[in-house]
Design a protein around this nucleic acid. Structure first.
Length: 276
DNA sequence: AACGATCCCTGTTGGC
DNA sequence: TGCCAACAGGGATCGT
């Protein structure tokens, strides 16, 4: 499923295609994908004629700066994916948004499970957008141990849940949260407020390492969930995962079998020996 | 305010 | 072999 590395990989592929282009026409064929706007028709109206000035990312959100003060927000959800091609090509099944650009390229948003969305907000709406509740981006210098310590102070929820919350840090999902906790040797059920400073520092370092590896590999494509890069290739990070999806396999550090528990209705993988 | 449960959605999987 | 329930999960929402 798309997390920060998959969204960043998507951003890097889309940036040269979108930035500087004008969206001449937009087609939105699934109302749920447009649910952050008043209607699919409103989203189409807001997209039409807009020039894309920049493509950024915060956490798992893609952020497109449009002209005249508009902002494009897209989230891949569980199964969302962007691709691009020519108008003559048949779009993939479950393609819900088409952006016809002024150079003839068509950008497509495809999302079988419709957990993702595409939206356009004005400046006032941006103030109350989903971005407002996000903590510092996990792949930025704004995320460090002192910031993390501040946001975890007094928090009794398990650290795994707090990492998924996007408040203390934005961009980690179920796969990379497990990977970070394993590398930092922190048990996923540890209450946030009980993690000592040296473990918080280890978590920040582990986050940078895990994300750097995953971005370099083009993200993680699981066997059963087909996240694909915009050019159709699979991400190559799966073999680098040390705990996620490895229940029962020996820990690469100590050999103890990896355990699986459920935290906040999310599968959670950890080494009971390394992570106390 | 913080936390936990529930819901949305559909392709894939596992059990019978 | 075929059918169907269970499962997967990011984020919003709601109750406590």
């Amino acid at each position: 499923m798309p997390e920060l590395p998959e969204v960043e990989t998507t951003r890097r592929h889309l940036e040269p295609v979108l930035v500087g282009r004008v969206i001449e026409e937009a087609i939105v064929s699934h109302p749920r994908t447009a649910r952050r706007n008043a209607s699919a028709e409103e989203l189409v109206t807001r997209l039409r004629g807009r020039r894309v000035e920049a493509l950024r990312r915060h956490g798992k959100f893609l952020v497109g700066d449009l002209d005249e003060g508009w902002t494009l927000i897209a989230h891949l959800g569980m199964s969302g994916r962007f691709s691009f091609g020519s108008p003559e090509e048949e779009p993939p099944v479950h393609t819900h948004v088409l952006l016809h650009l002024d150079d003839g390229t068509v950008v497509r948003f495809t999302d079988p499970r419709t957990f993702g969305f595409v939206a356009v907000f004005d400046e006032d709406e941006m103030a109350s957008s989903p971005l407002g509740r996000l903590g510092p981006d996990a792949w930025s210098d704004a995320f460090d141990a002192s910031v993390l310590a501040e946001s975890l102070a007094g928090r009794t929820a398990p650290i795994k849940a707090l990492l998924l919350d996007q408040g203390p840090v934005a961009g980690l999902g179920n796969i990379y949260a497990d990977e970070v906790l394993h590398r930092a040797k922190v048990h996923p059920l540890t209450p946030g407020r009980d993690i000592p400073m040296d473990r918080l520092e280890a978590m920040v370092t582990a986050t940078r390492e895990v994300l750097a590896e995953a971005i370099e590999a083009g993200g993680t494509t699981l066997d059963d969930l087909a996240y694909l890069l915009p050019d159709g290739r699979a991400g190559e990070n799966l073999d680098r995962l040390r705990v996620y999806g490895r229940t029962g396999e020996p820990c690469v550090v100590c050999g103890t079998p990896i355990e699986r528990i459920v935290v906040r209705a999310r599968s959670t993988h950890f080494c009971p020996d390394c992570q106390h």
